[in-house]
């Protein structure tokens, strides 16, 4: 059964002439980890906004085609109803804090208060989310006193407590230091292992290659390719599309090391494997 069904999705922001999304059709299965890549301005953030209903409900503009998530039509639904199905996390951890709560637990409770979840249930979900993201020690801290990586995990947790089935992450680590980045990736990996559907925009293609089941390459609001990482990163014209393949793939391409069907390795493990095969054959 398909979870997310997108049909000829088109979208134009107000006051603009060009289509930011130009006829996207694809499906995403339950529990998949999808990576989205593409140059600046390719339409990645716009697609994220469309999957979470911000396009068109927040941005307005002109909309065509449809997105069905678990049977509900995004265009016909209210943002608050979509929020129960799809959670979204942005780049800047700072602007994602509500700014109206002075402890992490209260910050997490915000979305549930809006959805009228009873207090006992709130407490249970908050405990679960804090544990899953390894931020139990921060529960009484003021959200604005946290480091970027901690704050971003609070942002993820505050989405998680609303129990969405899909989490969309738009460059969640682009404003974090290396340590914060590592913390956040670990957290995302854990969510994926729990069976959550994850859709992540990310420039660090090594991470995409490591985590994603499939990768979507966007350019000028259109899908160029939507394939498993090994296949996608083996494409020859990626640099022209503004994408740098993982460092392993670039090395392997340089040495012309590939598997039987001609795909280049994309992760450390697969590179080591292929190199070993080459050694053994000599």
């Amino acid at each position: 059964m398909s979870k997310i069904i997108v049909k000829s999705l088109k979208y134009k922001y107000p006051l603009t002439e060009a289509l930011a999304l130009n006829g996207l059709t694809f499906q995403i299965e339950r529990g998949e980890f999808i990576g989205i890549i593409g140059r600046n301005g390719a339409g990645k953030s716009t697609l994220c906004a469309a999957l979470s209903g911000l396009v068109p409900h927040f941005f307005k503009g002109a909309y065509g085609g449809s997105i069905l998530i678990d049977g509900i039509n995004v265009k016909e639904s209210k943002l608050s109803d979509i929020a129960r199905k799809v959670g979204i996390v942005f780049q800047n951890p700072f602007t994602q804090m509500t700014g109206a709560k002075d402890s992490v637990t209260e910050e997490l409770a915000f979305g549930m208060e809006n959805l009228a979840i009873p207090k006992t249930e709130m407490v249970r979900r908050i405990d679960d989310a804090l544990r899953l993201l390894e931020i139990e020690n921060l529960r009484d801290k003021n959200p604005f006193e946290l480091s970027g990586g901690q704050m971003q995990r609070v942002a993820i947790a505050s989405i998680l407590v609303m129990l969405p089935e899909v989490i969309v992450l738009d460059e969640p680590t682009s404003q974090l230091d290396p340590q914060g980045t590592e913390e956040v990736f670990k957290a995302i990996k854990r969510l994926s292992n729990q069976g959550m559907t994850i859709i992540m925009v990310e420039h660090k293609t090594e991470k995409i290659a490591e985590y994603a089941d499939r990768v979507m390459l966007l350019d000028q609001g259109q899908i160029v390719a939507f394939d498993p990482p090994a296949k996608l990163f083996s494409l020859s014209n990626l640099e022209e599309r503004g994408v740098r393949p993982p460092v392993f793939t670039r090395v392997a391409k340089g040495l012309d090391i590939h598997d039987q069907v001609g795909l280049y390795p994309v992760t450390l493990e697969s590179t080591v494997n292929e190199v070993q095969k080459v050694y053994e054959s000599h």
């Binding site: 911000l54 129960r84 602007t95 989405i159 609303m162």
Partner: peptide, 22 residues
């Protein structure tokens, strides 16, 4: 971005709220 983050947390829901603080 803050407005978008609030929408993602059901800020516009039209139900009677509950409260985490007693």
């Amino acid at each position: 971005e803050r407005a978008m983050a609030l929408e993602a947390r059901a800020f516009s829901a039209e139900v009677k709220h509950t409260y985490f603080r007693d």
